[in-house]
């Protein structure tokens, strides 16, 4: 097959139909930008939520009367509970030190004695950092002998459980909607461009061009459009984050993770969108009769 001709033909579409090329590239860029920003937002929102969950721990306050060996036994029992990742012992002295760090006062001097109890800080395993998971450990530890009080941020977990779940589903729904819209938008734009070339396709068939011969330049065109569209979207995202970092005091790059590979993925998805759009669009026209009835 005349490979040189097909390559030339694929590229020369840019010269021949500037407006429709521009429209297709622009559409691909916009779609990818929407998708990318949305994905970045979703990934980061999810990691913020997970970060908050990871920080949730139960504080198990112990009676002052417990001996060292009682404490050790209790710790072993708590470690053995389902859903517990690790248990850290905080002595009365350590509690006083933490108090001083947080409030700037030495509790021993204020009250002449240390009222702060020793405690276990219990961290939960991944998958148990939910209201239900925390509650089961709460109930189990509260009934243990020597345990005075158990506390955890129940309201935060409850909020995360309900609202975060709703948020994630909502985000996923909107994300899918944006993704599907992007595919349709790109396919439609390319279809309009190919529709304009319908007569040319008919003439090609009349002269005896095979379907592959007709198809290849359009696919190449789609690939190039997708690549350029993807590169523009990747460039805009890169610049946007560079620019934002100058204005946001927090190191944005710490929160928003956009790896170098992500830019490659954006360009790759662009190429895929371009080719897919071309395949979907040309399929209809290539089967048409030479003479319209």
């Amino acid at each position: 097959m005349a490979l040189g001709y097909l390559l030339k033909e694929g590229i020369s579409g840019f010269r021949r139909a500037k407006l429709s090329m521009f429209a297709a590239i622009f559409t691909i860029s916009i779609s990818l930008l929407l998708l990318s920003f949305f994905t970045i937002l979703l990934i980061n929102a999810n990691s913020v939520i997970e970060g908050l969950r990871n920080r949730v721990e139960l504080e198990v306050f112990l009676g002052d009367y417990l001996s060292k060996s009682d404490t050790d036994t209790l710790q072993t029992k708590i470690v053995g509970l389902i859903g517990v990742e690790d248990v850290r012992y905080v002595s009365k002295d350590e509690a006083a030190r933490i108090f001083q760090e947080e409030f700037g006062e030495d509790i021993n001097k204020v009250l002449d004695f240390n009222p702060l109890p020793a405690s276990f800080k219990v961290r939960l395993k991944d998958g148990y950092r939910t209201t239900a998971g925390a509650e089961s450990v709460y109930v189990a530890t509260k009934e243990m002998k020597g345990v005075e009080e158990v506390a955890y941020r129940k309201s935060l977990l409850e909020m995360l459980d309900t609202r975060a779940q709703t948020f994630l589903w909502l985000a996923l729904g909107i994300g899918s909607f944006v993704a599907i819209s992007a595919i349709f938008l790109v396919a439609n734009t390319i279809r309009l461009a190919i529709y304009a070339k319908r007569k040319i396709i008919q003439t090609m068939k009349l002269i005896g061009a095979t379907r592959t011969f007709i198809r290849i330049p359009f696919l190449l065109e789609g690939l190039v459009q997708g690549f350029i569209g993807g590169a523009i979207a990747a460039g805009v995202i890169y610049l946007a984050f560079e620019y934002l970092e100058q204005f946001v005091s927090m190191q944005l790059s710490d929160l928003v993770a956009v790896d170098r590979e992500a830019y490659g993925i954006i360009i790759g998805v662009g190429c895929l969108l371009g080719i897919l759009g071309s395949i979907l669009s040309i399929r209809r026209f290539i089967g048409e009769k030479v003479v319209e009835q």
């Binding site: 005349a2 001709y5 003439t203 002269i207 005896g208 011969f213």
Partner: peptide
């Protein structure tokens, strides 16, 4: 179709390329 030549009333030339390329097109195919 390559064994046939077809001529139409409405010509069916490719409007985006010159005379030479229009004729050469049948050979590229």
């Amino acid at each position: 179709r390559r064994k046939l030549g077809v001529v139409f009333q409405d010509f069916k030339l490719l409007p985006d390329r010159d005379v030479y390329e229009n004729v050469a097109f049948a050979l590229y195919v």
